[in-house]
Each structure stands twice: as structure tokens, then as C-alpha cells.
Design a protein around this nucleic acid. Structure first.
Length: 466
RNA sequence: GGCGCGGUAGCCAAGCGGUAAGGCAGAGGUCUGCAAAACCUUUAUUCACCGGUUCGAUUCCGGUCCGCGCCUCCA
């Protein structure tokens, strides 16, 4: 089966091929940088990463753009409260975000673009919409007149025809003609940051940045546009109105949305106090890979219920894969090649690939791996796994890690060097031989404290860094 | 009210017409000086409930109950 994705436009899983057959032009709504990203944000960005990696695995070239929203109401309010220039404030959180991406092993999109560096493009886009008669001015601000855009609601599958005739909506804050209308350009207020524009000083509305930047870098029609489910309406619906209103062409062929993450069955919220950040989890002693594993273990279209328990389970699962890899690399195996095992490798790879092709079914892909690990561990125990089978099993792990990226460690050498460790192991082996088990255990504990775990196998001692 | 999603073992979760993957946790066992690692056995005669279609339904259709999301800012 070919690579397919669930498209919010059609509410169906469709086969995906980039328009030009080769390069995937993809846009992802990025973070608003006014705070640390929480694990819910991170789930969506991890989904972007999985999608990226799988597209690349399938041989497509990526041209992936992600925006950084660095001008927005909350940002303005917070930076003004703190008396810090807006750009200093946002730059700090942008850096934290990029650090988190590295920690979580999220691949960097080809381009990460800031809203404040594309005001010019936004102004031009608004002018185009004005020229087409799709806007109206109100007290220095510019609004989109949705009644002029047929098809509004096609992404969120809302039928707005009923309220189409609605006359001027009462609203203290905005002076809109229709409830669906939204602001493209907000007139300057007080000491807020502003930019000059033909229609007056002010700042861009929330939605315009994505349309302007996506089209600037990727053209009028994107292959894929991604974001969290909550963005489908109104944000993405409005992006469609802006972009298609201006170009008359479909804005994105595929809209792919990632479901939310809950914590302990509840929505994350400040009042409940169940908002976690990557940094907090790492401080608590959990590994970034464990979080990555948890986030990837539930397919992106299902709500994910995060618990600390699941994080611990994820770590155990990762350790299992790492132990298996170590075993493949270090076990003494008899010469030859067992064809049955080669067949198992092929089957596991086929299931792994088919699962991810099927709308990124990461849960099933994981199952394929674990099934393979269990089966071949048994064969390893039985001595049926031969030296000639090593390569294909390791290759399978490598392919798995091209997407999941949780097996390879980034642990750096700490304190003890390899030679010192080998020396201590030799001493312990000698102690064991002369039945001095107390001394042997003492050495093992000493190494454990240094982060070295020993395993006694039939062929001798195997060690690994924790 | 409108649109959409979901209810599968203690927990997470796949499967979605042919008789229940996988992970974690638990119990017992093999191996070991003890560990660790690994393996084996064990944990759903059953997939919220009630009807219907079918030779056959967890999978399709209708209804009921429960939970959730969006419809205002939100990943």
C-alpha cells in the first residue's frame, strides 16, 4: 500500500504523492513564543517530525517551513508588563523552543521563519485582498469579508449559510459586519509595537502570517499543511480564505491535524497544575527519549493520555530495544546464516513500513518491531541465530530508528574511561573465580554508581552505559 | 443546537467482516553465587449496551448510554 494520510478536507485517508512527484512542500504552524512549550505542544511537533521522517524514508525531498509567531496579543501584553522589548522577549523563548527540539530529537524544518520578518509580505497580501474587494476597513483596522468567500467552512465542515445574513454583530471589542469576519490588520493602539502600512500603522492579525509565509516560500498550493486539531477552526479556515481569496488556487492539498494530549485524563490547565514541560520531566530524571517514545506510541489522530507511569513504561521499552541491539553486536554467534531469520527480518520490515504508510500507524509499527525482537531473542537463546544474520537485524533496527530515533544513545562518557572499566571488570571476574562474591558485588556497585551496568553472559561480561 | 472523535484486558493500545497484535504493570518458572539481560507460562470465550444485515460482526447499519474536542484564544 502506498503512503496515505488522513486529509481533514475530505475526512478520508488518501494516498499521498507530492504534486511534482518528488518534493514535498509542507507548512507547519509553529509555536507562539511567549512561554516554554509544554508536552502537548511537543506532541504536535513530534508528529511533524514523524511525518517528515517518514516522507524522507519514502524517498521524497522535503521543503518544510515552520513559522515562529513572535507578535501576538499575549506576547505584547507580557513583554510590556515586564518592560522588555518584544523581540528580546520572544527571542529568548524561541531559543528555548529550538533547544527543546534538539533535546527531543526533532528534525529541524528546512526553514524556520519569523512573523515579524515578513510584515512586508503580509501587507502585500492584504493589499491583494483589498484589490479583490474581499475586505473592508473599520476604525483603522482591515477585516476580511467572509460573505465574499464561497467555500468558507469547507475545512472544518461547518455550514455557515444559516448565519450568512446576520447583520452587524454586537461586539464591544470589534466592529465587524459579520460574526465570521476576522481581522487582517489591527490598527495601532497605545504603546503597542506597530508597523507602517498603506492602510495605517498597526500590526498583523493572527492568521495572515501563515498565508503570507507559506506562499512566499512554498508557492500558492502546498502539498501538506499541518497543525494541532484546535487550529482547524478558525485559524486554518481563515488561512484558506486569505490564500485562496488572493490566488484563486487551492491553498493546500492535504490538511493534516494532530490530536491533543491529555494528562491523567484531563485537559492540561494551569488551575489543575498538570502542565508539564520537557525540562521539568528531564529534571525529574526522565529521559527525552522516553517522552519521545510516549508521544510516538499513540497514533497522531488519537487523543493521547499522558501519565508519568506511561513515561516509565516507555523507558523500559527503550531499554529493551537497546539491550537487544547490544546483544546483536556482542553475542558470540556460530558461523552461517539462518534463512528463517532473514525471512523474519523481511516480514518485520514489511509490516513496519506498511504500518507507517497507513496514515502513520506508529502503534502498529512498534508492534512489528517488538514482535521481531521477541522472536529473534528466543532464537538467540536457542543458538539458532547465526553470525550471518547480524547484518539484516541491525539494518532493521537502523531503519526503525530513522523514524523513531530512540535506540541510539547520546550518552557521553562520564568519568570512567573504557580501559578503567575493563580493568575493574577483570578484577571482578577474578574475585568471582575465587568465590569472593562480596568483592565482586562491591565492584559491580561501584560501576553502577558510575553509570555502568554489567551483565554476566555465557561468553563473559557485557557492559553498557546507563 | 451544529460539526467531528472515541468507548477493546489493571493501564496504554492495534485490528475494523472470518473468529482478539504489541507495550507496560502483576504472578509463576528457566538461567545465575546473587543480580542483570533474555526466554517460557499466565492476565479479554470477548471488544459500552440493545436490535438489525450476514453462513459468520469487535469490525457494517440503526438506536441507547457514557466520555471528549471544536464552534471564542489555544498544539
Amino acid at each position: 500500500m502506498a503512503l496515505s494520510l488522513f486529509n481533514t478536507l475530505s475526512l478520508a485517508v488518501e494516498e499521498f504523492v507530492p504534486a511534482d512527484g518528488k518534493t514535498v512542500r509542507m507548512y507547519s504552524c509553529g509555536p507562539t513564543v511567549y512561554n516554554y512549550a509544554h508536552i502537548g505542544n511537543l506532541r504536535t511537533f513530534t508528529f511533524n517530525d514523524t511525518l517528515r521522517r517518514w516522507l524522507a524514508y519514502r524517498g521524497f525531498v522535503l521543503d518544510h517551513v515552520m513559522n515562529i509567531t513572535d507578535v501576538e496579543d499575549k506576547i505584547i501584553r507580557k513583554s510590556m508588563e515586564l518592560g522588555i522589548p518584544m523581540c528580546d522577549y520572544t527571542r529568548k523563548y524561541e531559543e528555548f523552543f529550538l533547544e527543546d527540539m534538539v533535546t527531543l530529537r526533532l528534525e529541524k524544518p528546512e526553514r524556520i521563519v519569523r512573523a515579524t520578518e515578513h510584515i512586508h509580505e503580509m501587507v502585500e497580501l492584504i493589499e491583494t485582498l483589498q484589490d479583490k474587494g474581499l475586505t473592508y476597513d473599520s476604525e483603522g483596522s482591515v477585516y476580511y469579508r467572509i460573505a465574499r468567500f464561497p467555500g468558507y467552512g469547507k475545512l472544518s465542515h461547518n455550514d455557515f449559510s444559516g448565519i450568512q445574513a446576520a447583520a452587524r454583530v454586537d461586539n464591544d471589542e470589534y466592529d465587524k459586519d459579520d460574526a465570521r469576519d476576522f481581522v487582517l490588520w489591527k490598527s495601532r493602539k497605545g504603546e503597542e509595537p506597530y508597523w507602517d502600512a498603506p492602510f495605517g500603522a498597526g500590526r498583523p492579525g493572527w492568521h495572515i502570517e501563515c498565508s503570507a509565509m507559506a506562499m512566499k516560500y512554498l508557492g500558492s498550493t502546498l502539498d501538506i499543511h499541518t497543525g494541532g486539531v484546535d487550529l482547524a477552526f478558525p485559524h486554518h479556515e481563515n488561512e484558506i480564505a486569505q490564500s485562496e481569496g488572493a490566488t484563486g488556487k487551492p491553498f493546500a492539498r492535504f490538511w493534516v491535524h494532530c490530536e491533543h494530549l491529555h494528562v491523567d485524563m484531563q485537559k492540561m490547565s494551569k488551575s489543575i497544575g498538570n502542565i508539564y514541560t520537557l525540562r521539568e520531566l528531564v529534571e525529574m530524571g526522565h529521559s527525552p527519549e522516553a517522552l519521545r517514545f510516549v508521544l510516538m506510541s499513540v497514533p497522531y489522530r488519537k487523543k493521547l493520555n499522558f501519565t508519568i507511569e506511561s513515561l516509565k513504561g516507555a523507558q523500559t521499552s527503550i531499554d529493551r530495544l537497546r539491550n537487544y541491539k547490544l546483544r546483536l553486536e556482542t553475542d558470540k554467534l556460530a558461523d552461517g546464516q539462518n534463512n528463517e531469520i532473514e525471512k523474519l527480518c523481511q516480514q518485520a520490515l514489511a509490516k513496519f513500513e506498511a504500518s507507517l504508510d497507513d496514515d502513520l500507524n506508529t502503534a502498529e509499527a512498534l508492534a512489528a518491531m517488538f514482535e521481531f525482537v521477541r522472536e529473534t531473542n528466543t532464537l538467540l537463546d536457542q543458538g539458532a541465530f547465526l553470525a550471518g544474520n547480524r547484518a539484516s537485524a541491525l539494518d532493521l533496527l537502523k531503519r526503525f530508528d530513522r523514524v523513531f530515533d530512540v535506540i541510539e544513545t547520546r550518552a557521553t562518557e562520564n568519568g570512567l574511561g573504557d580501559e578503567a572499566i575493563e580493568a575493574l571488570i577483570a578484577e571482578r571476574t577474578a574475585a568471582k573465580k575465587s568465590k569472593q562474591f562480596a568483592r565482586a558485588d562491591e565492584i559491580r556497585n561501584q560501576l553502577l554508581e558510575a553509570g555502568i551496568v554489567l551483565e554476566d553472559t555465557k561468553e563473559g561480561v557485557r557492559w553498557k552505559r546507563k
